[in-house]
Design a protein around this nucleic acid. Structure first.
Lengths: 255, 255
DNA sequence: CAGCGGTGTTGCACTACTTGCAACATTCAT
DNA sequence: ATGAATGTTGCAAGTAGTGCAACACCGCTG
């Protein structure tokens, strides 16, 4: 591992919290100001860091551009998107797509009934991993020892009275989810919001992403939402088929 | 400038083009494989790079999270304020900054006119949404169906004879504003007060705020006020540039 | 207006860190 | 099995990053 690069990269999450001046950066890095200056300069030349008019530093445009490109390179997302839109059109609720990566679950796509293309707003945000239906599916597919390791490393915030309380309960839930092949979140994150989710699998059968439909109690009850489960699963399966190359895509030539 | 960091950061745009294996990265960087490996490892530890199942590297998820967090912690007002003050100093009139939120448009900053005239605006106060120039810009940027939905929910008070009379007229006005990229309010709220306004856009091009210059007829005529339009737009663009973290002077250095 | 504390910036000597090499490990194809 | 890919590790050499101290540049305040 490279110390210099390590230090430089440590600046990024620091600046994500908000703008900071040279001194603050140097302090929080534990290095001399001149060192921090040179690191910041390098980051600046790559456009990852921007210097605003009051001389303070903050994250720069290239970072956003990179994030966007990274997202576009996720082919699950591209394949899934039209399916998500169609599902949204037929049920009207919010549809999410999420992936697991390095102890985190992230939303990589979202179709909201009132606001279809909301690229930068919530996409990219880490999911409440201990309660979200998509997170359960993604974690449930991990090999047993890894699943256990992750579950024990997590915090278990009590968002609501129905939030997953601790690792034991979480692991049991994951086991259940693993067997039934779908998952729910019934008010575990926000009291009045329920979700049902289904997994998207690659050619080797492993879960590469998960999708969910969410709706507040005031619109549909949990039971009513559950009647959508077959539709959600069918959609997920359709995406799986296309992603794993089993289902030919119309209009596209596959070699 | 730091060479090691420079090399490490050069990997990111490279991976943005698509996944690559160690050899490819080393080649394109012009360094030994072992060097590339260590750089990639460091990037990996920070979550900026992800190793997919076929061992190839691609951009990682933390990139989204960083971009997301940075956006949330960005304060338009903080960035805009000095620009607003400068604009006020050069033209002398009242300058407003406003944002759209949940069917309302709110003033979030104001620099008072140097002329001894009073205006009935207050920071935090909802704007006369059907007539204010800033409101037009903010609403004009909404997706079509939402724009329509909002327009139809609104009341259309007749503040003056030139107030927007009904939803139809308002939607037509919004369409015009959307196309021309700026807006006016000529006596629509108070008989003797005119405004010209310009939009402030984020990295994704969406309108995040709007700013305006207002002045009563007794100080300048509407035509005279309109001659300020280029200045207002330039100021708004400068704020946009800073808000979205674009580097205005230096081109991007590609090694 | 001079003096002062707070910033950001530069040149330089020192040594810690990165580097490329070459050998090893691992996977896959022949 | 054998070979050719690829990824990985330990090490010695020296480059490249580091901290220091001095400088430059504000905006303050007396």
């Amino acid at each position: 591992m490279s110390q210099t690069v390590d230090r430089a990269l440590s600046i990024l999450p620091l600046l994500a919290e908000g703008p900071a001046d040279l001194g603050q950066v140097a302090d929080r890095l534990g290095v001399h100001k001149s060192t921090a200056l040179r690191l910041l300069r390098t980051l600046h030349e790559h456009g990852l860091v921007y210097r605003q008019s009051d001389q303070r530093y903050r994250l720069g445009a290239r970072l956003f551009a990179l994030a966007q490109e990274a997202m576009e390179n996720l082919d699950v997302r591209e394949i899934a998107h039209p399916h998500l839109v169609r599902l949204n059109e037929s049920c009207g609720h919010t549809v999410h797509l999420a992936v697991y990566e390095e102890n985190e679950v992230l939303y990589i796509d979202k179709v909201d009934s009132r606001y279809p293309v909301r690229m930068y707003s919530r996409i990219g945000k880490p999911v409440a991993i201990t309660v979200a239906a998509v997170a359960k599916l993604l974690l449930a597919d991990l090999p047993e020892h890894e699943r256990r390791a992750v579950a024990e490393k997590l915090d278990y915030p009590t968002y609501t009275s129905r939030s997953t309380p601790h690792a034991g309960a979480f692991l049991r839930e994951l086991e259940k989810v693993r067997e039934q092949g779908w998952a729910t979140d019934l008010g575990g994150h926000e009291e009045s919001i329920n979700c049902v989710a289904a997994p998207i699998r690659g050619a080797d059968g492993r879960v590469v992403a998960a999708m969910s439909v969410s709706a507040p109690n005031v619109v549909v009850t949990a039971d009513e939402l559950l009647t959508l489960l077959p539709l959600v699963r069918r959609t997920a399966d359709a995406i799986s088929g296309e992603y794993s190359g089993r289902t030919p895509v119309k209009g596209t030539t596959t070699a």
